[in-house]
Design a protein around this nucleic acid. Structure first.
Lengths: 333, 333
DNA sequence: ATGAAAGCGCTAACAA
DNA sequence: TTGTTAGCGCTTTCAT
């Protein structure tokens, strides 16, 4: 690379000061006489000098870059989190290295290691399920890590979420109150703690509160996708459920469309409440009632928490729970 | 930072070789006796040595990192491109620094500069509209740049797109052939070259081919959003159009829903063809016919092109045009 | 096949 | 307020 490599040394020479002084003005160190500062700034401008962040990183041991591990940016849920993360990162002068993992254990570990090799100052991790191995890496790492919209059963690192259990309980309750005696629970893999532990327990809580018995036949494990939702019709119909709490919007709209395509009226004959209140829920006809998670904020707060961690500030509480809402739209009575 | 900083020097000492040799085995340089290599690898493993990419970057002047400037990751269109970019980047051992610009000139320039300061090996830029200033930065930069799904009128940098003009012509033609005498053209800002030059001209081409006169009253400039689509009803109804080619899926579904909510049957009384064939088009009822752009591939090919540029390989053609399709679904007869 | 040594461009004591 | 001088951890000639 024969980049017009203007270095701090060139500036120092032209301005007839030392590198240290140039470094000081570049870094806003107050210990510089205004006249000197002015002179240096002029030269910087004239030479079009741009500090080399890599050299700076090596010398200072800080890269002002954080790693973001995400299952899939093209998934609306995670993309919203990512946007929140980047905005706050920018606000605090960080950049993000974004890496897709597909939720795959090997890739997650791989990418975490390359991020650490790149000396990121911190990491934000998103994933449905934290495997033993990734948690091992986390506990081994000296670099601050925060989970966004993801659960670590033993909370060794920071995290930002909503209360999935309570939210699911609320949704289920609403469906029960409106007269449904068989409410289905439709989620992604129950192996994922958010589904198998928090949401499912919230669902059970609601049943218990209403003296209804838990029936495994009403629990449906599915992939998170529109197509999977479409294909759910037969199984759900077979269960005689008349309502469902669904853990994913694509899934929910898929189910909704398969229902209405078969002539079953929503919400008349079947009610649905989904979980992310994404644009999908507004576009569907009828629109879909939903728990509303502050996705952008979850990302933003996670990044904010990470800045504190990177700064070695004291943290009041490293597991943050943000509020949710229940938005009633067209898919509930 | 008191990271357990194991350096190449530690490895060299433990393995009783020189730093240079360690560097060779780490970098897969063949000039190392197998026995030596083995010994070094053992020590690396034992010490859990991980090369510092920042130091490597400073010494080699390559960071294996590329910058990606994107208007908004939480927009499905760009998120798809981003996913394609990252997958190919990973394939070629690059990481991406992702930065949202909101299509804002100042932010774009800002972020481009910090990316260059971070010594990225290349940049992928996405944006609706290349301002003079950003194009100035591009031409000044020695770092390879490729546009993905974006048009630079004077093609100074590489780019990957579809033929928006031809695609829009096809879509318009289809609508005309099916009997519509007033076909609306609904896009984002006409200031953006993709809309104002390519798409609009494709629309005009189709009119001309069919001996129809161009009527400005049928051209609607709008924001790219679902909500904007919903609000389009009055204006569109007023124009007496009976069909529309729309440049954005959210916009299209918004229009569709506002139409059906008002009791206008689609496609019976109004036909729609949109542009990105995203999941939105399948979820809507009726589903929306669409031009199908290979978004993931546009991103992937852009990144592939960038790898060639970074590698100083010869490029056959730096403006790549990928094929599109016209997918007929429920919103056309 | 291996080693010695000079940087890469910057920060951060430490002096002055 | 300013300068001197070590590094930061690695790659890369150039010797050997």
């Amino acid at each position: 690379m024969e980049k017009q490599t203007i270095t701090i040394y060139d500036v120092a020479r032209e301005a007839a000061v030392s590198m240290a002084t140039v470094s000081r003005v570049v870094n806003g160190n107050p210990n510089v006489k205004p006249a000197t500062r002015k002179k240096v700034l002029e030269v910087i401008d004239r030479l079009d000098y741009r500090p080399n962040a890599v050299a700076r990183g090596l010398a200072s041991k800080k890269t002002t870059t954080v790693g973001v591990i995400i299952p899939d940016v093209s998934n609306a849920y995670f993309a919203s989190l990512a946007r929140g993360i980047d905005d706050v990162a920018t606000m605090y002068k960080y950049n993000i290295i974004l890496a897709n993992s597909d939720g795959d254990d090997k890739k997650e570990i791989n990418v975490l290691n390359t991020l650490l090799a790149k000396q990121v100052d911190g990491v934000i991790f998103m994933g449905h399920h934290l495997t033993e191995s990734i948690r091992g890496e986390f506990s081994r790492s000296k670099t601050p890590i925060v989970l966004a919209g993801s659960i670590d059963p033993d909370q060794q690192v920071g995290s930002v979420n909503i209360d999935y259990r309570e939210a699911t309980k609320d949704a289920t309750n609403k469906l029960i109150k409106s007269g449904n005696e068989k409410v289905a629970f439709i989620s992604g893999p129950l192996l994922d703690p958010i589904n198998g532990q928090l949401r499912l327990n919230g669902y059970k809580d609601a049943l218990k509160e209403n003296n209804m018995t838990y029936n495994e036949g009403l629990v449906f494990e599915s992939e998170y996708s529109y197509k999977a939702g479409l294909n759910l019709y037969d199984r759900v119909a077979h269960s005689n459920a008349t309502a469902a709490v669904v853990a994913d919007d694509e899934l929910a709209v898929g189910l909704l469309n398969s229902l209405t395509d078969k002539g079953i009226s929503v919400p008349g004959e079947f009610e649905i409440i989904t979980s992310n209140n994404s644009l999908f829920t507004d576009m569907a006809r009828p629109s879909v009632s939903s728990i509303s998670q502050p996705l952008y904020d979850i990302g933003a707060v996670a990044m904010r928490l990470l800045t504190k961690l990177m700064n070695k500030e004291d943290i009041e509480e490293k597991s943050v729970i943000l509020p949710y809402d229940l938005i009633e739209k067209g898919s509930t009575k």
